[in-house]
Simulated assay, not measured.
Amino acid sequence: MDIVYAIWLRSMKRFIRSRSGIVGSILMPFFVLIFLGVGLNNVVTIPGLGGGDYFLFLIPGMVTMSVMFSAIGSGVQILWDRKFGFLKETLVAPVTRLEIMAGQTAGGATNAVLQGCCLLIPALLLLGLEIQNMAGVAVTLAFMVLIGFGFTAFGIAVASRTGDSAGFQLIMNFVMLPIFGLSGAIFPISSLPSWAVPFTLIDPLTYGVEGMRYGLTGVSQIHPAICIAVIGGFCIASTVAGAFLFRKMK
């Protein structure tokens, strides 16, 4: 476990020192939240949610967006470590690749959850979001952790099969936008046309968004037990795939 902790600690120190990266990753979803919320709050009504307040509907989606984008982006660190030789030094050390991958995943997921919290706290203080009880806080954090671990492992899996950071960014942009766009983060699933519903239901982030929404507002269009089962299964599957591909990386 020492190597897992050491790699996790390295990721945390890098996160703390990268102030511009923290600010940038928080401001983008925050500005999307403000612009969409201000523009559509008086136009869009969400039945059964805080009197139809679109701001309240949008906040869980934007927090999820912050966590997912940060988590997947952690995969690029694998490529930078390989480019500058740190990964080679780690791989030849008397530790298993599984431990290295576990440390990278834990560090990326922790960073992602912290960035999600950095967006959630202003939403609580400035935008009128009210969490009803501590159980809602626990549910919200649980889904943030599962989303963070699942998509960090997914990013590591892709990075393990990608030759350079530019290619990784291109693939991630191609993958992340459909995953986020179909997740119901910015519109209710019930408003989708019938042909789009199956695509939304096979999107793992949909269950993360709805689980977060349940924790923050008490309302969800998918039962929270189903949400945690699906996002938990995705977390396990992506971790197994990431560990397998990382072990095969040369």
Rank of each mutant, 00 (worst) to 15 (best):
L114D: 01
L119D: 01
L36T: 10
G233M: 06
G208S: 04
Q169C: 06
R14G: 12
I186H: 02
V209T: 04
L58H: 12
T162W: 05
P198Y: 15
A112C: 03
V219E: 15
S191L: 08
F244W: 14
F31H: 01
V197K: 15
D53F: 10
F31P: 00
A196R: 04
I59S: 08
V38D: 12
L127R: 09
L146R: 08
L36C: 11
G24Y: 04
V92H: 09
L182R: 09
P29G: 07
M212C: 09
T206I: 02
I171N: 03
T45C: 09
T162E: 05
L9H: 09
N41H: 06
S160L: 04
W195P: 14
W80V: 03
I156M: 08
L127W: 13
T96P: 08
P193Q: 13
W195M: 12
R161F: 05
T64V: 06
T239S: 13
F151T: 03
V209K: 05
A237M: 02
V92I: 15
S74K: 07
G85Q: 13
Y5W: 15
W80D: 01
T90N: 09
E89C: 03
S191H: 11
C227V: 00
G51H: 10
G211Q: 03
L205A: 01
D203W: 04
S165W: 11
L182T: 15
V92G: 10
A229W: 06
E210D: 04
G136P: 13
I222Y: 11
L87V: 00
E130N: 12
L58C: 12
L124G: 04
V43C: 07
